[in-house]
Computed example of a mutant assay.
Amino acid sequence: MQVIDAMHKITSHIRNPSKFSKASKLALQLIEAGSVKPGTVSHFFAILEAAMSSPGACNEPSVRADYQALFNAAQGVTECFNQQQKKQFDIWVLHAVVANDLFTDDSFVFSKAVGKIKDAISALPITTVDDDNDEAAALAAVESKSGTTHNNTDDNAQAAASNSLPDDSTHAAASNSREESSDPFGLDGLLEHKSNKSEKAREKTVAALNRKADEDESKRFLKSQREALLKCLEIAARRYRIPWTQTAIDIFAKHAYDNMNRFTMQQRDAITKLWNSIKEQQIRRKQGKSVSGKLDVNAFEYLQEKYSHEKISIRHAVGGGGERRATQWLG
């Protein structure tokens, strides 16, 4: 109980940048003490979620090292996470560990981080028309300042479906009433047949809701992963003025450009503009001309600014046990 209370206290403080350093060290102590177990993992995950409530905060110079220390250590307890938590944690690692490695002055660490990001890009699925449409809708929602209602769509849909489903207690009461009657007209068989049909319809509805929930969840994770990788590309591009980073960034950006079909439309536009500006820098270097080291990241800035307004918590998407299922409606 003391461990859980401690986790709750850390959660309440760790989202505050001025208290992050101290709170993260306390979280590290819990990991080192072996306090993160199946019985406490949900409370520990809440600490990580609070720490990443604003993903951009983890890249601030004053807390980069603390974020890296916390999330590197947390990788040792991921066996306690459920599937959804592991997926979310992997995205947070891109923000808190890999992206921060791009700020290093060590060329080996920088190149290693670039390699990890390239592998992650290669593992992305090909973008679909639906992905592009979803992106356009999301950005339009942010523009119109109505994006906050989007996150409640699934909950409202499930609640509406739940309200529309028959109540098991009603069936049970009706069944008991029929058993107590003499049923002189032989209607029991008909009523039971109707109940069976209703139950089958109910199961189909629940199955459909579960499929929709799984699809939406997969889309959300994929969207977050693309955004994290795009942020890494932007951070790397901003370091292009440093000569020893240029070759790695050239290769990194070319890889992203060659795999543009794994990103959404606006992201593809940002990658194209970045790659074109890199080619200009390369031409100037070959001609012996001076280079500014500044790349075109305006499109990245636009997207990151829009992404920052989307606050989505993993707990909005999954049930108490981490499994986003609708089986509880089966009674």
Rank of each mutant, 00 (worst) to 15 (best):
L94R: 08
S146A: 09
K116N: 13
D183L: 06
L124K: 06
A120S: 15
D134N: 14
I121H: 08
D155F: 08
E143S: 12
K118N: 10
F185M: 11
E180S: 14
K116P: 06
T170N: 01
I126C: 05
T149P: 02
T170M: 01
D131Q: 09
P125K: 07
L187G: 03
S144F: 10
A137Y: 11
H95W: 10
N151C: 02
N176L: 15
E135F: 06
L94H: 04
A120F: 09
D155M: 10
N151A: 09
A137N: 06
E135T: 07
P184R: 09
F103C: 00
S107D: 10
I91A: 03
S175E: 11
F110Q: 02
D183R: 06
S182A: 15
L102M: 00
G186E: 12
V114S: 08
T104G: 02
P166R: 06
S181N: 12
F108Y: 13
N133H: 07
F185T: 09
F103K: 02
D188T: 10
W92M: 12
S111M: 06
V114G: 03
N163G: 15
I91F: 05
P184Q: 09
N152R: 14
F103Y: 14
D119A: 15
D183I: 03
S144T: 14
F110V: 05
S177F: 07
Q158A: 07
H171D: 11
E135L: 07
V93K: 03
T104D: 00
A120Q: 14
E135N: 05
D168T: 00
F89E: 04
L165E: 04
D188P: 00
G115V: 11
A141E: 08
P125F: 09
I126S: 12
T170K: 01
A141T: 07
F103M: 00
I121R: 11
G186R: 13
W92V: 01
S177V: 03
F110T: 03
N151W: 04
D132V: 01
T104K: 03
S144D: 13
A96V: 02
T153Y: 05
D131M: 13
K116M: 14
G186S: 15
F110S: 01
D101Q: 06
S175V: 11
L165N: 03
S182L: 14
L165F: 02
A123K: 13
E180D: 14
L165G: 00
S162W: 02
S162H: 00
V97R: 00
P125T: 09
H171L: 11
Q158R: 11
A123S: 14
D105C: 01
W92H: 03
H150F: 08
S111L: 04
S182Q: 15
A137S: 10
G115M: 12
L94E: 09
D90H: 13
T148Y: 11
H150M: 07
N152G: 00
A137V: 12
S182C: 09
A123Q: 12
